[in-house]
Amino acid sequence: MNQVKSSGFTKQMARNMFYGGTVFFILVFVGLIFDSERRIPQRSNAQEITPAVVRGKHIWETRNCIGCHTLLGEGAYFAPELGNVYKRRGPDFIKAWIAAQPTGTPGRRQMPQFNLSNEQLNDLVEFLKWTGNINTEKWPPNIEG
């Protein structure tokens, strides 16, 4: 096998394969990203991204929610998936739950208290509601996320 390699296949050929393959697949990738960009507005109902949704995303980020939860399956695996939490629990439960943290139940996983105002809670719920309507190819498999 080494015989074949050293006689036929040279370092220069390997290098050309690397450069050629990389450039080709970068171009294909960029093309697909452009096409994805074109389709994302419709798949994500971008027209429904209200100022409240944008503010809600900001709350989501600045409280580091992703440090415990997943959102569309990405994040930490310590606390429940929240991409479909609006459908699973509804807006009132979400707000009451966040306001009641931490539970202080001995031995249970604890969520910090973020002291969010009612308006901030509403924004966060708007963000989660919008997120729940993204076309995720029917993921998650069931309501438990």
Binding site: S36, I40, R43, S44, L72, E74, I134, T136, E137, W139
Partner: peptide, 8 residues
Amino acid sequence: HFFFIGTP
């Protein structure tokens, strides 16, 4: 990574 995050 683009299976279920809203990408095509």
